[in-house]
Design a protein around this nucleic acid. Structure first.
Lengths: 348, 348
DNA sequence: TAATTTTATGTACGCGCGTACATTATGGAA
DNA sequence: TTCCATAATGTACGCGCGTACATAAAATTA
C-alpha cells in the first residue's frame, strides 16, 4: 500500500477495530491521492451481502405499471427510505408465466430482502410466499393481506376507508348507493366490500346477514379491474338501473373517473344526477369535473415503512425476529376521506 | 462435484466451449438435484461486470418523481428492455447537493452502464457528463440535449411537436396564442420555444428576427415549472391580458390542466373562451373537461431505446464504438399531435 | 525492569465463480 | 498401428475485498 500499511485500509474504510488517528488520516490521504474507489461488487462478495433491496413489480404487458398512481407512490416511498439507509434498489419485473421465482432472487444473492408489490391471493402465490418465509428470507408485502398467514405486511385500513366514504354519501342524503369493486384476488377489494356493507347495514338499508355477498342487491354491485375503461363500461350497466341508484362508490379513482365519463356520455351529470366517490385520492381526483371525492391512502408512507421493515430485518445484526407476533407484522395505516364536490349534490 | 466433473459445470451453465451432450445433461441433472443456484454476486465478481443498468433519477424532495407521467413512461420502457436483455435495473436517486457523483457509480462497479433522467443543462452537470464520457463509461441521456457535446441522447423532436400544436391552433382560427413554457435549463423548453416562434412567424404574427426571445411579445409568454400549480398561477397573469389572448399553448399537460382550472376559476371556460393545448398526452389529458389537445411523445419507446443503446455499448463484445458519428448519437423521435376539444372553439 | 494487559497493525486465507492452460479422450487419415 | 488434429475435461489461479488470527507496539501495572 502507498502510505504505510496493508489491509489496515479495510479497517480504516470500514471503521472497525481500533486505530491510530494518524494512520487513518494517512490511509485516507493515500486513497484520495491514488483515486482509490472500493469495488462494490467485491465488497458484496466478501461480505456476502448484496446491499440491494429488491422490489418486485407485476409485469402486465401493455399496462404501464409505473403510470398508476398507486405504484408510483409506493415506489417513491421505498426509494426514499432505501436512499436513507444506503441501500440500492433493484427493480424486478415479475415474469408473466412463472410465479414462484421469488426464491431465485434470494438464492442468487442478488438482494438482501425484498418488497413484493401487486401480489394477488392465488394458490400459487401463497405457496411461493410460504416458501420464502420457510427459508427465512426477509420480505414484505404492501397493500395486500393474506388471511391465515403471518407475513410482514404493510396495508391500509381499507374497510374503514370504504366505510367512511359510504357513510359520507349516506350523510349527504344518498340512500341507493351502488358499489363498483375491483377484482376479488386483491384483499383490499374484500376489505372495501366489508366497509361498504357495514355502512349500508348500519344505515338500515341492507339486512344484517352472515353472508356478506348475499346482503348486496345484485344490481347495486359491479366488478371492474381498476382500469378507467372498466369504469366507463360499468357506467352503462348501472345506467340500466339508473332509477334505483343515486350514487356509486368506486374502489379506485381510475374506475371512478371512467364512471363519470360514462355517465356523462349517457346524459347524466356526475355530482348532480348521480354522486360518485372514488378511492386513492390520486392526482386525477383533483382534475375531474366535478372534483372527485376520494379516500386518501398513505401509499408513500407505506412504501417507506415496508422498506424500513425489510431492511431492518435484513440487517447483519438482526437475528431471527421470531419474537414479533403475527399481529405485529401486519401494519395497517389509516386512510382519510377527502370530500370534494362529486358527492355533495342531494340536498344542495 | 456430484455427477462426474469439476468446473466443467461452469462451462455447461455458461454454455461455452465444446461439450458432450451427455455431460451437459448429467451436470444439469445434478445441479437440479442439489438445488444448486449460481451466486450472482460471485459471478459478477469473477466476470467483473455487475449485470446492472443504472437509472439515475433526480431527487426532488416533496415531489414524488414517479408520479409524473413522463418519468413513469420512460421507466416502463427501460424496464421492459432491461428485462428482455437479462439485466437488472438499479434505481439511483441523485443526491440533492452533489451533482458530480456519477463517476462513483461506475468506479464502484455497481453498474455496467447508466441512463440519466431529468438532467438539466448546468455547468456542473456538463462537467460531470464530460468526465463520464472521457472515462469511456457508457451512458445515455433521455429527453435532454446538450448542445455542443456529443453524448448519447434519446430525445424527441419537440420543436416540431410544438410547431404542430401551435400550427393547429392557428388553423383553428386562433391568432393571439400565448405560450406557457417550462424552465430553460431543459433543452426541450428551448425546442418548444423554437417551434412556437416558427409557427407564429410563418403565420405572419411574429416578425422574423435573429433573437428568438425578442420576437415574442412579453405578455404572451410566461414560464412555469411544469407543475399544475404553476399553470394555475400563470392563468391569472394571462388573465390580465385576456382581451389580447385567445389561446395558450402549455409546455406540458400538468401546466395545461392548471391553466384550465385557473381560467375556469376566473370565469373563463376553457375550450370556449380560451383554447388550450398541452404537451405529453398524459393520462390527465383524457380526463379533463374539455379533453385536452396535446402532443404525444413516445416516452416508453424512448426508454426502451436508451436502454438498448447503453446495454449494447456496455456489452462485453462492444469495443469503443467511436465510429459512431455525433449525429448518430442523437436519436430524435417523432411526436404526434392529438387533437381534442380544448382547442376547437373559434369557428365551431 | 519485567510481566501483563490493551491497542494497533500485519499475515494469510477464503468467499464462488470464470477462464487460461494443461491434460486426456476421441476419431480420422496416413 | 502411428501420428496428429480436434473435442472434451481437469487443474490452478485470481478477481478485491473482509476478517480471524498472529504479531508487534504501546500503555499499564506489579
Amino acid at each position: 500500500m502507498a502510505g504505510v500499511s496493508e489491509a489496515t485500509v479495510s479497517r480504516v474504510l470500514n471503521n472497525v477495530g481500533p486505530m491510530k488517528e494518524e494512520t487513518k488520516r494517512k490511509v485516507l490521504e493515500a486513497a484520495d491521492q491514488l483515486g482509490y474507489y472500493p469495488n462494490a461488487i467485491a465488497q458484496s462478495f466478501a461480505r456476502r451481502r448484496s446491499g440491494n433491496l429488491g422490489v418486485v413489480l407485476p409485469y402486465v404487458p401493455k399496462v404501464h405499471i409505473f403510470s398508476t398512481y398507486y405504484f408510483s407512490e409506493i415506489l417513491n416511498g421505498i426509494g426514499e427510505q432505501v436512499r436513507e439507509l444506503g441501500y440500492d434498489m433493484l427493480l424486478i419485473f415479475r415474469k408473466p408465466g412463472v410465479d414462484n421465482s421469488y426464491m431465485d432472487l434470494f438464492r442468487s444473492q442478488k438482494v438482501d430482502g425484498c418488497i413484493l408489490l401487486g401480489t394477488t391471493d392465488s394458490p400459487g402465490e401463497r405457496k411461493a410466499l410460504k416458501e420464502l418465509e420457510a427459508a427465512g428470507y426477509p420480505f414484505c408485502l404492501v397493500n395486500q393481506h393474506f388471511e391465515g398467514e403471518h407475513f410482514w405486511e404493510v396495508d391500509a385500513d381499507h374497510e374503514q376507508g370504504a366505510y367512511e366514504a359510504v357513510k359520507h354519501l349516506l350523510d349527504e342524503g344518498y340512500r341507493r348507493i351502488a358499489f363498483l369493486n375491483g377484482p376479488p384476488e386483491f384483499s383490499n377489494s374484500i376489505d372495501r366490500l366489508r366497509g361498504y356493507v357495514r355502512a349500508m347495514t348500519e344505515a338500515g338499508i341492507f339486512q344484517p346477514g352472515i353472508d356478506i355477498n348475499a346482503s348486496v342487491p345484485r344490481e347495486w354491485m359491479e366488478a371492474g379491474n381498476y382500469s378507467r375503461t372498466s369504469g366507463y363500461e360499468a357506467a352503462s350497466r348501472f345506467f340500466r338501473n339508473k332509477d334505483r341508484i343515486d350514487a356509486v362508490f368506486a374502489a379506485n379513482d381510475r374506475m371512478a373517473i371512467g364512471l363519470m365519463q360514462g355517465f356523462r356520455d349517457l346524459g347524466m351529470q356526475p355530482g348532480r344526477d348521480i354522486a360518485i366517490a372514488g378511492y386513492d385520492d390520486s392526482d386525477g381526483a383533483r382534475i375531474t369535473d366535478p372534483p372527485l371525492t376520494s379516500v386518501s391512502v398513505p401509499f408513500y408512507r407505506m412504501g417507506m415503512m415496508a422498506a424500513r421493515l425489510v431492511l431492518s430485518s435484513a440487517a447483519p445484526g438482526a437475528k431471527e425476529q421470531e419474537h414479533s407476533t403475527p399481529a405485529e407484522r401486519l401494519i395497517r395505516m389509516d386512510t382519510k376521506l377527502v370530500i370534494r364536490s362529486s358527492s355533495s349534490g342531494k340536498h344542495a
